[in-house]
Nucleic acid binder design. Structure first.
Lengths: 228, 228, 228, 228
DNA sequence: TATGAATGAGACTTCATTCAT
DNA sequence: GATGAATGAAGTCTCATTCAT
């Protein structure tokens, strides 16, 4: 599950990220690759409506007809783009992943040059912002945990991106640590940060901000214990 | 959501816990309080089968008839104990909560006398053990996140137990901190610990043990930053 | 496909017939064995309506809802008795087979003692009557030729009954012929008779009667060429 | 349904056959008469693919889109040649009929001069060969028995060709028989022969050859009973 | 004319829940 | 009370056909 390797090349970071971003490759789960603007617009419309309904009612409680109606797309057209209901969820997952990837690509240069502490702080801020802008990210995927193997991969892959990026940074700045340490530290950081930031979303504004700050404190002190 | 109060009485801890353990009160979601041994046995049988099926196939994919068949209980009888399918999930949640409560009640005396660091360490160990023995705990509830308000309460309540227990301990040992600090610290600790331990369950044995150790390190260093 | 054996025991005839009549065995394709009179009545009602609709509109053009409505049975109930649409057709086939079997069982004693020529004549008359009383027999099964393996067996089995009965009679009265001759003759007789009698059904009354007579003539002259 | 007339002119045979061969007349069921080579080629391509799919999956289970894809013809173009799905089946039936007609036209002279017995024997051989070369002939039409009136005519017409040809021969060689006898005899011969030869196709090689021989024996002995 | 994306009625099937026995 | 057959609303998905480009 964890790619264990000693890397010393900063650019690998983005290469690793590219692995699952699939820039330009054909989207899996799509019945037909929409080439025309109209189609792409429809697909996005479907995904937007699906996202909202999945968040509001859950994946199971949302019907394909409701999505079609909400997206003002005939049900038949919906099924021209997606072979079945699950494919909509997968496409949504992929869209999240791509957006996530884009977020971090934009910061790649900035992040690459940072020492680990500010690196992690920045990552927390960016992740927080991403969650705030994409409230469905975790919400949707929690429901189908354990029932859709293909989706698990995507979800896992998104985290794996971050984990590998951190592993990379750790191995560069702290080569004296064991590669297994790198993996463990990165895993703990990413998962703890992800969870806390996600949970913070449903808290009231003041407490929410406090939680973001606490997340940084948690992460930095943990790192310090290894690196200090 | 969070009971904010300065308490100095150890027993309050259990009182808080009692709030949702419902010892003696009429179980909510139950159509009929099974007084006879046979009935109680059937209810447990139903919950056992439901737990297994929910874990294996998910809540939605599991039919009430399948539960009835698995529990060797007529479907009509099942509906005499539970008003609807959701009530089974809620009863399951309640059972988890009770089991969780029982776990910590047994350790109440031991924990109450400990300083915070060993307290948290012990809590991590006990939680880890509980998860290991009740693999359905998180797995089941993730699916219905955001779609079953009543359940959210129960799920939240389980964590709230721990959070309040920690708040209590914090307020006793570190009264110089703001009550809001107590809440934030306890929240972060409980959620981060809960997530990491749960995620550790699906990792291979070596990495799993490492994650438990890392969870302790994460929690203790975070606490140290406040208390050191 | 053809059981090749030299038999000299008259009773075997009925044994062979019994092979696929399945007297008392559990009906395959049935989701639930209806034990109560009400259920059996409903199943028959469903089959009656299905038979009529299949004949009138064809198997594919007939919807399960139409059957349910026609039989005044809720669609849900229909699916308690039959796992899917195909199972209705199979049950219908089985009912035909059983009725067919019953027809010939009633005549078993009479037929067994007859010389071959009157035997065949009588068989033609009985078959003609059966087709007249069960106009769906062939009509329905023609449509699904080659698309429902399970059904093919039943259809084939019904003919196989007759074929084996004739093979038996041939082997008794004309042991000087090769067993392969028995098979070929019986096959030709049964298939030719079956087809002609079935086709006669859609002809006008006068021509229809003529065709039954011609069928006898065809069969008897064919037999005579071997046995004369 | 049966043209009852005493004819003594050999050429009438072909005239009768011409009735439904439609040489030169506008093909029914065709939306547009393809005049250009490209169009005719496409129509044939469509029919070839449809034939294969109808045989393999049945008429109902075959989608028009699948035919279009298989024939490498845009679905829109397909609907320019055929008004609906049924028209494809009808055109296929017509093509069979034409091919059948061609088979017998080639043998017309040879057959016309033959006495009845060799005539019938030759007809069996030719029919057997035709079936062998066009395995879809019966297979396809069985499925839609009773659900497509237009098709029934075409299917019937093919047999009617043979029947009328035999009626003709009978009336020439055995004018002492009643015209009704001619019709009945011809009907029985054609239908029995057609069925047995078709059934022989699905038998193993040895038994198949035997069945062709038996078919001749059946037909000839039947004729002999009238003509001997 | 040629194309193929778009359409939506309607098919099959499920399953939580009830209620007559 | 106990049972389990009965119910039917509602879900997912198909595919013959059209029509804008």
């Amino acid at each position: 599950m964890f790619v264990k390797q000693n890397v010393s090349n900063t650019h690998l970071c983005l290469e690793v990220i590219d692995i699952m971003a699939g820039s330009g490759s054909k989207t899996p789960g799509m019945r037909r690759q929409p080439r025309q603007a109209r189609s792409q617009e429809r697909v996005n419309q479907i995904l937007d409506v699906a996202e909202e309904l999945f968040i509001r009612q859950g994946y199971t409680a949302t019907t394909t007809n409701a999505i079609a109606v909400g997206a003002k797309v005939p049900i038949g057209s919906l099924y021209q783009f997606f072979p079945d209901k699950a494919a909509i969820l997968q496409a949504l997952a992929l869209r999240y992943t791509e957006q996530f990837h884009q977020c971090f690509t934009e910061l790649a240069t900035e992040l690459a040059s940072l020492p680990l502490a500010p690196y992690v702080e920045r990552m927390i801020e960016v992740t927080d912002q991403f969650f705030r802008e994409h409230p469905g990210y975790h919400a949707i995927f929690m429901e189908v945990q354990g029932t859709m193997p293909e989706l698990e991969q995507l979800d896992e892959a998104a985290d794996a991106q971050l984990i590998q990026a951190i592993v990379l940074s750790l191995s560069q700045h702290y080569p004296e640590l064991d590669p297994q340490d790198h993996q463990a530290i990165a895993f703990v950081l990413v998962k703890a940060i992800g969870t806390l930031l996600w949970l913070s979303l449903s808290q009231e504004a003041t407490f929410q901000q406090r939680l973001v700050a606490e997340t940084k404190r948690l992460a930095l002190n943990y790192l310090q214990s290894y690196l200090g």
